[in-house]
């Protein structure tokens, strides 16, 4: 695959309102830089993230999807992230089975206090996706940007 130096991946981050979105806000409050590629979608809980959303993002041309939630045991809704963990593990395993690059998907637990972790995670994830190059395996050609 040709490596495009100027490739700027589109990264969709689903963040739960209580921990990870607050963590993202904290990294802003602390002025911790991470790449502009990351765009956050606020969801009440990581368990709101339907696998359909992830596939949809890839189909529409996202190059990486990351889901962030409260640490296991700290879910604002008690158990939401435990369900997330099972669903997403199975989905990621299936995507892997279908030959989709593993580094395009990620799940990370980020608490409201972990602004630094949020920034570092996004930095790393963006780099990983950048290294993979554009998502060609799951996108819908009709959605491709010119």
């Amino acid at each position: 695959m040709q490596v495009n130096e100027n490739f700027e991946p589109v990264i969709v981050a689903f963040c739960c309102n209580w921990c990870s979105y607050a963590g993202a806000d904290l990294s802003g409050t602390n002025r911790l830089n991470y790449p502009t590629n990351v765009k956050i979608i606020r969801v009440p809980c990581s368990c709101r993230v339907n696998p359909m959303f992830i596939l949809r993002a890839f189909q529409k041309g996202a190059d990486g999807v990351i889901i962030c939630g409260c640490h296991p045991g700290d879910c604002h809704y008690t158990s939401g992230n435990y369900f997330t963990r099972r669903r997403i593990t199975l989905l990621y395993s299936m995507l892997d089975f279908l030959g989709i690059e593993r580094d395009r998907t990620r799940l990370e637990w980020v608490s409201a206090a972990e602004g630094a972790k949020f920034a570092a995670t996004m930095q790393q994830f963006t780099e990983d996706v950048k290294a993979l190059g554009p998502n060609r395996r799951l996108e819908d050609l009709r959605c491709r940007k010119q």
Binding site: V10, V12, I41, V43, R48, M52, F53, A57
Partner: peptide
């Protein structure tokens, strides 16, 4: 479905980011 965070709303957000 969830009011305020409906399937179609979240997918619209996904689409807007990926556009």
């Amino acid at each position: 479905d969830l009011s305020g965070f409906s399937n179609s709303q979240i997918m619209a957000e996904v689409d807007a980011i990926c556009k």
